[in-house]
Simulated scan of single mutants.
Amino acid sequence: MNARTYAATVRRVLAQLLGDRRTVALILVVPALLVILLSFVYRDYPHGEQLFERIAVIMIAVLPMAVMFLVTSVTMLRERASGTLERLWTTSLHRADLLTGYATAFTLVSVGQSLLLVAVCAWGLGVSIAGSWGWILLTALLDAFVGVALGLLVSAFSRTEFQAVQFMPVVIGVQMFLCGLLVARDEMPRGLEVTSRLLPMSWAVNAVTEIRSTAETTAGLVCDFGMLAVIGLVALAVAPITMPRRTR
C-alpha cells in the first residue's frame, strides 16, 4: 500500500462526505433521532422504561452498521457510475489504497456518529448500564467499521446504486432478525442459532448486552471485540479482490 495515495484518498473522501450535508445528517443525526423516537414509542407502554433501556443499548449495536453499510455502498457505486474510479485507475492508485482510504474516511466520520448516539442514550435519555459507556462507544465504532467494510465489499457486486440498496435486506435485515434483538439467540431453532454466530451484528449485540449487565471486562467481551475486528478486516481484505477496474 502506498502511504501517499492512501492519505490522498482519505482527504478526498472526507472532503466529499463533509461537503454533502444530507449524507452528514444521515450518518450523524438520523441514528440518534431514531433512538429518541423509540423512547417515545415505549413511554406509555407497560414496563416500557425497562424495555426501552434494553433495546436502546442494542440499537447502538445495530444502527451504526446499518447506516454505514448503506452510505458506503451507495457512495462507492456513485463513484463508479460517474466514471471517477475509471479515471483513478489510470493513475498509480491501487485497489488497496482506494478501499483502505475509503474505510478510514468513513470510519473517522462514524466517530462523530457513535459519540452522538452514546451521548443521547447516556445523558439525553438517561439509559443506565452496569459497565462503562466507553466500551459501548468502542462497540459502536467497531460496528460502524464492519458496516463500512461490508458496504465496500457488496458494492463490487452491484452495477447501480439501486442494486446496492437491494443488498440491504439481505446483508443487514437478516442480521437484525438473528442478532437477538427480537428473540434471544439461545431460544431460536438450532439452525438459526448456529447461523447467528457467523454474523457480525450478533457479536456486537453480545458485547453491548454484556456491558449493560456487568461492569467486569470478561473474556467473552474481549472475544466479541476481536470477532468484530476480524470480520471487518477480512471483508476489507476481500473487497479489493472483487472490485472491478471498469464500470460494467
Results as ranks from 00 to 15, higher is better:
Thr5Gln: 09
Leu236Lys: 01
Thr160Ser: 15
Gly173Ile: 14
Met176Val: 15
Met201Asn: 01
Val24Trp: 05
Val234Asn: 06
Phe106Gly: 04
Gly226Arg: 09
His47Pro: 01
Val194Gln: 12
Val230Gln: 06
Arg4Gln: 13
Ala81Met: 13
Val111Phe: 13
Glu53Ile: 04
Leu150His: 01
Pro189Asn: 07
Ala15Ile: 08
Val57Tyr: 00
Ala207Ser: 14
Ile231Asp: 01
Leu221Asn: 02
Phe157Asp: 10
Arg78Trp: 02
Glu216Met: 10
Gly124His: 04
Gln175Val: 11
Val230Ser: 05
Gly147Glu: 05
Leu70Gly: 04
Ala237Cys: 06
Ala56Ser: 14
Met1Lys: 05
Arg245Met: 12
Val171His: 03
Leu63Ala: 03
Leu28Met: 12
Trp123Ala: 14
Ala61Gln: 04
Ser92Trp: 09
Ala8Thr: 10
Gly151Thr: 07
Val222Asp: 06
Leu141Trp: 11
Glu187Ile: 05
Leu236Val: 05
Ile241Lys: 15
Asp97Gly: 02
Val171Thr: 13
Asn2Ala: 08
Trp123Tyr: 12
Val170Phe: 14
Ala149Tyr: 03
Ala81Gly: 15
Asp20Ile: 07
Pro244Arg: 11
Val183Glu: 03
Ala8Lys: 06
Ile58Gly: 00
Arg246Gln: 14
Ser158Ile: 08
Val29Asp: 05
Ala32Leu: 09
Phe40Ser: 09
Val146Asn: 04
Leu182Met: 14
Gly147Leu: 06
Leu150Ser: 02
Ala15Met: 12
Val146Gln: 04
Leu233Asn: 03
Ala122Ile: 02
Thr242Trp: 13
Pro244Trp: 11
Ala32Ile: 11
Phe106Val: 08
Ser39Asp: 11
Glu193Pro: 01
Thr23Tyr: 04
Leu85Gly: 00
Gln50Cys: 03
Leu138Met: 11
Ala204Thr: 07
Phe157Gly: 14
Gly83Gln: 06
Glu193Lys: 08
Ala15Tyr: 10
Leu63Arg: 02
Tyr42Thr: 08
Met243Asn: 03
Ile241His: 13
Ala61Ser: 13
Phe145Asn: 00
Met68Tyr: 03
Ser158Cys: 15
Ser132His: 08
Leu198Cys: 10
